[in-house]
Design a protein around this nucleic acid. Structure first.
Length: 865
RNA sequence: GGGUAUUUAGCUCAGCUGGGAGAGCAUCUGUUUGACGUACAGAAGGUCAUAGGUUCGAUCCCUAUAGUACCCACCA
């Protein structure tokens, strides 16, 4: 029954997770209870989980464990994401390192490699989930490329296509020339890069001595120019509209046209127009029915439209072309500038806007539905609330979603093109005459399947029992960085296909930064591996740190000191438990408030129980609002101040009691400890389980135990007042000793005068003030210093230097005088008396009276010295 | 250009619907008090960014200003 002397987290963590898992505690399905459902945001199968996953999973697991303890049938469904582009990049790299590549081995063999990769990393992920201690239901684990998900994806694609919400079109898309695939707009990260702004002469056809100056950052696109555009209001160019200039790159003639789009202030006010390689130019081209010659291949090399530069890489071409233009005398100047350049989120390659044929989802109607839904009761509740704005903002202004990717790893687009006609088939059934058809080569954006995650994992499109019971989800937890990528898309797909928002609440958390506040990144090498932290401090401490350090939605810095502080806290709980188990009889088994005779409780027992019930109420409220920082703070203060520093110390006296209160103290110790365990348990389940299973009465596991409920029968308001007076008296005497340079254990003669019967509390005060003698009195005691406190006055026999006492008293007097002044200011303010709430006025009056008495007493003392 | 957040003790951050500013770490002074030195008892340290406004009363609400961070859009 006794706990080890040392809190050894390694020993404690061992075997518990496997035990919980094997016993089936993680499994959902008890339909006698109300349900609470959540799915894990599926991690990519690209590698190890990082600390960002740890914070995500910790918040989820705290929520689930709390809800389970509150009596819910909790579903926490796990799964992994195939992560199309990210995984393909990794497998590509692996093949290259082995001296081959995906084109050499072919699509089928490549996919085999991908699946093997997925298996290996799923194992790693499982190990890490186990380390983190999360209670996911493995019997329901899913994978975005499993059979059910493929079914769901096809169903969604085909339906949206038939509804006209998916279309194929030739558009300017952002192309990643390294991964050789189109990307959606939100997969582009803009970074400030150093660049050059080149100014060229575009000579007039009529008069080659005159020219227009045109600036560009991408000279290689000049091969795709179809005209020059100026603003019709730009006085400089009024006369030249309609004339033609010569493209210095290839000698072609370009008409000068006028359009409001051009910014007169920017550059030279004259802009070259390349419809196939710039989205804005594309719009102008469309408006005026211009050609849109494609001059760059998707791998970043130049097409045959570029003459001798054909086949050359875009950057190489830029260099060579510059040489040529300079030799021709058409280069005016090169300006070094800093500008925003789009990079591929995954490969970091500079993306090229290229005209190409891709599949898109028409966003407007789907997005509008989300916006409408947010005005109804079925809306998604964001925690914190402000993140709803991020969703709304994006939903009211988003481009069509490019969903096709020129990759192999992913959901193949269920579209077949006729070899002989223009017919296409959109179906999940392979045509029987396949020889006449060819399937679309592309796969879908990885987020296409992720968007269906809340319902595809529950069996949708089939009306499975799980789908019926657990959908829509009660809660979703994720970082603010993927509100666009994921949350928004789940919401619109959920609304469109299930008529309901896919979850009721969404908890948004920030990211974990390094100790200097920088984002963790591979290139900086400043990442913190959660496994290292767990090995050093234990997972309970890591979880506690992650859940409590930042307020909701706010970023946090990793701080080893704080993890250490968490571990000290857990150590404190450990030792308090050890103390209790050492002091109550092994066969003592009453832990139920119904079975305790309240008369057996002494004043301090009643005091801590009252404080406990109060804190249970407040913590529950915070937990229900997903305010884990506030909840943990409340518990922390309760544990250190009320429970350890005060109550446990007092029990060192009460445990020696012989007059009938012992049983009450045993009960209180056990009951309070269990409640504390239950409240720390969602945060730090391993240590809680260890202590819990060592209690004289317990279930098989803390996972089967219930969360404490507020119990009115354990609230004793009058005891609080008395014990507060005791507490204040102990503190005052300690302070008195410090101020008078006495040893803490200096034995003094002490007299007490109180407004209530103090006798029951004398023994506590005597012990903790190290009193030589302690006597209750009715009147002032001569030759003593008096300390006036609410409901109690202490007289301490003087035994120290008069001058020091004088100085001390003078200082006290000043402080009290300022308090009196403040209080008088308020109480003399008629408007305060008229408008402030009554109880506020009353308490201020009481304080005022106390200050006055203290002031008088101290003044008297000073005179007597 | 549009938006979101943030500015509180030396450092990192809390502070729930306005009513005497808190924690961790660091600092200083004590302590072999029988759970814990991973501790205990105390101390010091803050015009709550600035300026206005609302209010009996503002760290909290409103407006403006400044600094910082991030998101979206974007300049050819």
């Amino acid at each position: 029954m006794a706990l080890d002397k040392k809190y050894d987290f390694k020993k404690i963590e061992e075997g518990k997770y496997e035990n919980w898992k094997n016993k089936g505690y993680f499994k959902a399905g008890d339909i006698s209870k109300a349900r609470f459902s959540m799915v894990i945001p599926p991690p990519n199968v690209t590698g190890k989980l990082h600390i960002g996953h740890s914070i995500d999973n910790t918040i989820q697991d705290i929520t689930c464990r709390y809800k389970k303890a509150k009596g819910f049938d909790v579903l926490y469904l796990p799964g992994v994401d195939h992560a199309g582009i990210a995984t393909q990049a990794k497998v590509d790299a692996k093949l290259v390192s082995e001296g081959t590549n995906r084109f050499k081995i072919g699509r089928e063999a490549f996919l085999k490699e991908c699946y093997a990769w997925k298996e290996a990393y799923s194992d790693t992920i499982h190990e890490q989930w186990a380390k983190m201690g999360i209670m996911v239901d493995y019997s329901r684990e899913r994978f975005t490329l499993d059979e059910g998900c493929i079914k769901a994806v096809n169903k969604v694609f085909i339906t949206l296509y038939n509804e006209g919400l998916i279309y194929r079109g030739e558009r300017i898309v952002n192309y990643d020339p390294v991964m050789k695939t189109a990307l959606s707009n939100i997969e582009i990260v803009y970074k400030e890069d150093e660049g050059e702004f080149y100014y060229f002469k575009y000579p007039f056809v009529k008069d080659k001595n005159r020219y227009l100056t045109i600036a560009t950052t991408r000279p290689e696109t000049m091969f795709g120019d179809v005209c020059v555009v100026v603003n019709p209001k730009d006085k400089r160019y009024l006369g030249v509209i309609g004339e033609k200039v010569i493209n210095p790159a290839n000698g072609e003639e370009l008409p000068i046209i006028a359009d409001e789009y051009v910014d007169i202030q920017f550059g030279t006010g004259a802009m070259k127009c390349t419809p196939a390689h710039d989205p804005n130019d594309f719009n102008i081209g469309k408006k005026y029915g211009l050609e849109h010659p494609v001059i760059m291949n998707t791998d970043g090399t130049m097409t045959e439209k570029c003459g001798k530069y054909a086949g050359m890489d875009r950057m190489e071409c830029r260099k060579e072309l510059l040489k040529q233009i300079e030799a021709d005398g058409n280069l005016i100047k090169i300006e070094h500038i800093k500008h925003q350049v789009g990079h591929s989120e995954r490969s970091d390659a500079v993306v090229e806007p290229i005209l190409s044929k891709q599949w898109f989802i028409k966003m407007k109607p789907l997005a509008d539905r989300v916006l409408e839904n947010q005005n109804t009761d079925g809306k998604v509740n964001f925690f914190p609330k402000r993140f709803e704005k991020v969703l709304k903002q994006w939903m009211s202004n988003c481009d069509d979603w490019c969903i096709s990717r020129q990759l192999w790893w992913g959901h193949r687009i269920p579209v077949y093109y006729s070899k002989t006609t223009n017919n296409i088939l959109v179906t999940d059934q392979k045509p029987t005459d396949m020889e006449n058809w060819v399937q679309d080569e592309d796969v879908l954006d990885t987020w296409f399947s992720s968007a269906l995650w809340p319902f595809e994992t529950l069996g949708w499109p089939d009306e499975t029992p799980d789908f019926k019971r657990y959908y829509p989800l009660d809660c979703m937890v994720t970082g603010y960085d993927i509100i666009f990528f994921w949350v928004a898309r789940m919401v619109f797909q959920g609304l469109h296909f299930t008529d309901k928002a896919p979850f009721k609440d969404v908890i948004i958390h920030g990211i974990v930064r390094d100790s200097q506040g920088r984002k963790m990144s591979k290139s900086l090498g400043n990442g913190v591996d959660p496994i290292d932290v767990i090995n050093k401090y234990g997972v309970d401490s890591l979880r506690y740190f992650l859940a409590t350090t930042a307020s909701p939605g706010q970023d946090m810095r990793y701080s080893e000191e704080k993890v250490k502080a968490a571990s000290n806290y857990l150590n404190k709980i450990w030792n308090s438990a050890r103390f209790i188990l050492m002091n109550i009889p092994e066969n003592y088994s009453n832990i139920d408030a119904k079975n305790i005779d309240k008369k057996r409780l002494n004043l301090v027992d009643k005091y801590i129980l009252t404080k406990l019930e109060n804190v249970i109420k407040r913590i529950t409220k915070a937990m229900d609002a997903y305010e884990y920082g506030i909840a943990s703070d409340l518990l922390y203060n309760f544990v250190y101040d009320d429970y350890c520093s005060f109550y446990l110390e007092m029990t060192k006296v009460s445990l020696k009691d012989e007059n009938g209160y012992l049983e009450g103290t045993y009960f209180t110790l056990l009951y309070t400890l269990k409640a504390i365990l239950m409240m720390i348990y969602p945060f730090s389940p391993f240590i809680s389980e260890e202590i819990y299973t060592n209690l004289p009465v317990h279930k098989e596991s803390i996972m089967l135990e219930s969360y404490p409920e507020f119990d009115k029968s354990l609230v004793f308001t009058t005891s609080i007042k008395k014990v507060d007076a005791l507490k204040a008296a102990i503190e005052a005497i300690r302070q008195y000793k410090v101020n008078n340079m006495l040893a803490p254990n200096e034995a003094l003669e002490i007299y007490v005068r109180s407004s209530f019967k103090f006798n029951e509390l004398t023994k506590y005060l005597a012990r903790y003030s190290f009193a030589k003698s302690l006597e209750e009195v009715k009147n002032d005691v001569k030759g003593t210093s008096s300390i006036i406190l609410p409901n109690i006055t202490i007289f301490v026999k003087d035994s120290v230097d008069k001058e020091e006492i004088k100085a001390k008293l003078t200082k006290d007097l000043e402080k009290i005088a300022s308090e009196i002044k403040r209080s008088e200011g308020m109480l003399n303010n008629e408007r305060f008396l008229a408008k402030a709430p009554k109880d506020k006025i009353e308490s201020e009056k009481q304080k005022y009276e106390l200050y006055k008495t203290q002031f008088e007493e101290i003044s008297k003392k000073l005179k007597n010295i």
